[in-house]
């Protein structure tokens, strides 16, 4: 296919790799975008190359940032003034790292890699974080079938997130919160793809009555799945 600017699919294949890698000089990009806009095949080709380019970065080894990095990021995000007191957190990290060191064990299993100490890149002290009392999870289910998982965060800025895998369902679904006082409030809607997969997250109003469950409704209002939290939380 050759478009109005005279740019062909063959030409695109010549420079697609450089385009996807982000190293194609600006002067060589002339005509590329127009072509991509009108050629789905080349768009898909570049999309695959871009995914390959992104995947290359997975091979770059991780590296511990300098000590204090986390605090400086939180400062930069403007969240340091509302952050919980540091003293307790640091003590806990130290205690856990020290306990791990004393036991001669590396606590793995997805534990965080936390920095401590002074100077140069922080030494690795993998620990497992404690249970978060404000963070809950429950399975989305209906008629004995699992449809995904919901995460509910009931801290100072409450939010929820859900990943849905509902084979045979697609289109818009609505999410509702159930509260202990019997009230039900809509908190958002999102779309399941043709495979029945979708995910969505967002904040919700804390309210005065604790949240007891989450309901997911089909477009026609019928219940797709629901999740119940064992305890009630705001």
């Amino acid at each position: 296919m050759t478009d109005n600017s005279g740019f062909s699919c063959e030409q695109l294949r010549e420079i697609g790799a450089e385009l996807a890698l982000g190293v194609l000089p600006a002067e060589d990009r002339a005509g590329v975008m127009d072509h991509l806009e009108h050629c789905p095949a080349c768009r898909e080709y570049v999309h695959e190359l871009t995914a390959t380019s992104d995947a290359l970065l997975d091979l770059v080894p991780g590296s511990e940032p300098p000590v204090g990095f986390e605090d400086r990021v939180i400062d930069r995000l403007g969240l340091s003034s509302v952050r919980r007191p540091r003293r307790r957190v640091q003590w806990r990290r130290f205690a856990l790292a020290a306990a791990a060191a004393a036991a001669g064990l590396a606590l793995g299993g997805g534990g965080w890699v936390l920095g401590a100490s002074v100077g140069r890149p922080a030494p690795v002290a993998p620990i497992v974080s404690p249970v978060q009392p404000h963070l809950l999870t429950a399975q989305l289910a209906h008629a004995g079938q699992s449809f995904g998982q919901v995460y509910l965060y009931t801290g100072s800025s409450p939010w929820l997130y859900m990943a849905v895998d509902a084979d045979g369902h697609s289109g818009t679904v609505r999410c509702q919160l159930q509260r202990a006082d019997g009230s039900i409030v809509k908190v958002g809607s999102f779309t399941l793809n043709d495979d029945g997969y979708g995910s969505w997250g967002g904040p919700y109003l804390a309210g005065t009555s604790p949240v007891t469950g989450v309901r997911l409704l089909n477009a026609d209002g019928s219940l797709l799945a629901s999740a119940t939290f064992n305890q009630s939380y705001g």
Binding site: V73, I74, L77, L79, S80, V82, R83, R84, G109, G110, G111, W112, V128, S129, P130, V131, Q132, P133, H134, L135, L136, T137, Y151, Y153, G155, S156, S157, P158, W159, L160, Y161, A163, S199, W200, G201, G202, P203, N230, Q231
Partner: peptide, 25 residues
């Protein structure tokens, strides 16, 4: 009761990040 943050999927943590909660950040 609750769950450790390690059990929260990356996408869920990102959703929480949008709320500006310092603990999630």
């Amino acid at each position: 009761i609750g769950i450790p943050l390690e059990r929260v999927p990356d996408e869920a943590l990102l959703a929480g990040l949008m709320t500006g909660d310092p603990e999630i950040a």
